[in-house]
Design a protein around this nucleic acid. Structure first.
Length: 107
DNA sequence: CTCTTGACGCACA
DNA sequence: GTGTGCGCCAAGA
């Protein structure tokens, strides 16, 4: 059907992100690794930036490898992201840092 | 059409 | 242990 070959990687990112269990978080590098290339971490960020379905894709559970929240959150802001994570039971070690030791998603 | 930046991560000096 | 640059791809100006 159409030419989604170029978007293949993006869709893969969306599927992986949607698979993140509630109360857990994943890193860009980990998602990129699940997509085939761990170096595509940058593109993972782009994929969420173009986030076609904000509330369908829990991109608020995606953080960098240090657990820091994104500086450009599609939902409205990092503050909203933190609120959503707190609502799921996720703890923070800093105002903008998630406790990966406790909530890092392990497939 | 070309150049630069960008939700990152890692290898190398 | 620290500092710098590179890789990967896409979109915006």
């Amino acid at each position: 059907m159409g030419k989604d070959s170029s978007n293949g990687f993006f869709e893969k990112v969306y599927e992986v992100v949607k698979r993140i269990p509630l109360g857990k978080v994943a890193t860009y590098g980990q998602i990129a690794r699940l997509c085939g290339n761990k170096r595509m971490s940058r593109q993972v960020g782009w994929a969420l930036h173009v986030n076609p379905q904000p509330f369908v894709i829990p991109c608020h559970r995606v953080v960098d490898r240090f657990g820091h929240l994104a500086g450009a959150f599609a939902f409205g802001g990092a503050t909203v992201q933190r609120d959503l994570l707190l609502g799921e039971g996720v703890t923070f070690v800093d105002d903008n840092t998630v406790d990966l030791e406790r909530h890092l998603w392990e497939e």
